[in-house]
Nucleic acid binder design. Structure first.
Lengths: 240, 240
DNA sequence: GCCGATTTGTCCGTATGTATC
DNA sequence: CGATACATACGGACAAATCGG
């Protein structure tokens, strides 16, 4: 897979921001300099910078330069914000990850499920419930609905490992957009049965719809997190 | 203020998606068509489409078209996700908003504040605590730190109305990037004193750093929300 | 399976506008 | 005012994916 030029520029600048070459509040080399460094056109550099801006790494200042606004996270705990696998998250935090599958079946969506997930009623779905353990503690309760017509051949073994790995590596499907809603909800009896709630009576709940590169929603997931291991990061950019 | 061409195309398409002209799962007119419609260059149309993609409205499909993946929110309640003032949010939900200022003072940041907010120790700051009421109920507890050197002349009157209005209209400063972290925390005695917690012992806590168009962080805010009036929306796009 | 039309994706070079210093 | 730097826009070229005949 050959990377696009703008992408390699983006990756390079991103790395240099992360490793401190361009520290917080410093200015990146000017667009003109970058053009010479990477021997490419103006627009190509700008596309890379637009990406960095959208991800919250830099803030361009008209007539002045491009300022780095990324700061390394101070408290290092379990966080999420991009599109990341549970396994990836665990590895990033040097924690031992384990997944228990408690439910695995195919269902047909009814009106209630359609209302909640956005899948039309009558659609054939996989329904999966999993418990995510970090260092042995049951911290996250996941409910997944997968579109059976798009994700064929799911097995408990796959589900226990990583569904995303199966989707991307085996099926060769690309995951692109993910829309999320975050709420705070009271623990249910089911939560208490499966999770080590340890006195917590509220959970952080992330509901997400995931789309593939055809713009088809193929997954609806609800992840219920124990609050003390949860943080969610997001960057918003005003208009322009 | 004259809008850029790409921006007017973006606004127009966005409107047409919101009002149902281009419904969920439909395809937008092709880039070629849009070029003719708006009498502009390829790249200009593409910039508008890139914006729509980044905001989660559409998903382009190589060789096929640009698919609309926006769905109107089903449960209409208090939500946030973009950069929006409290007043704007209240108006959108047809609720009567009221703000009580409980603390308003200037302080100098110490090590503890620096650690939490990201302002260097020794910086002069405004510190404000406010209670946000919707339809009379005290639902949100806000703590703000503003950089005094950047936001001069704050008064309780301004703070009771809208600080952002003051910043944008009176000072003429542009707010651009906002970085947020979302956590779930136990209510404190202070929360219980000021908010109508009604038995809720956990709150949704949004911490945000706001940057102006010079890339200077001028605000750190912590908003503590009662769970039943809180939802947070976010769109993530996988790298490429 | 191939070809050609359509459509999105990447890149270039140039020109002009506008903000900062 | 001039030099520098980011912002917008144009037009052209070619690549890559999709789809129908």
């Amino acid at each position: 897979m050959v990377r696009a030029i703008y992408d390699s520029i983006y990756q390079r600048l991103r790395q240099d921001i992360l490793n401190g070459t361009y520290p917080y509040q410093s200015l990146l080399p000017s667009e003109n300099t970058l053009i010479k460094t990477f021997s490419c056109a103006h627009n190509t550099v700008r596309k890379a910078l637009a990406l960095l801006t959208a991800q919250g790494f830099v803030q361009p200042i008209h007539g002045k330069g491009v300022r780095v606004i990324y700061q390394p996270p101070q408290k290092t705990l379990f966080t999420l914000g991009g599109i990341e696998t549970f396994k990836e998250t665990a590895r990033r935090n040097h924690l031992k990850a384990q997944t228990d599958v408690v439910t695995f079946k195919t269902i047909r969506s009814d009106d209630a499920i359609a209302e909640q997930t956005g899948f039309p009623a009558g659609t054939e779905l996989y329904y999966i419930e999993r418990i995510r353990r970090l260092d042995g503690k049951a911290l996250i309760f996941d409910k997944n609905y997968f579109l059976a017509s798009i994700i064929p051949g799911l097995t408990t073994a796959i589900v226990k490992n990583s569904v995303y790995e199966y989707i991307e590596k085996t099926l060769g499907m690309r995951i692109t957009t993910s829309k999320r809603t975050l709420t705070v909800e009271r623990t249910t009896p089911k939560d208490e049965r499966y999770l080590d709630v340890e006195g917590y009576d509220f959970l952080a709940v992330v509901s997400s719809q995931t789309f593939n590169s055809d713009g088809i929603m193929f997954e609806y997931t609800q992840s219920r997190h124990r609050p003390d291991y949860f943080a969610f990061h997001s960057t918003a950019i005003r208009g322009k």
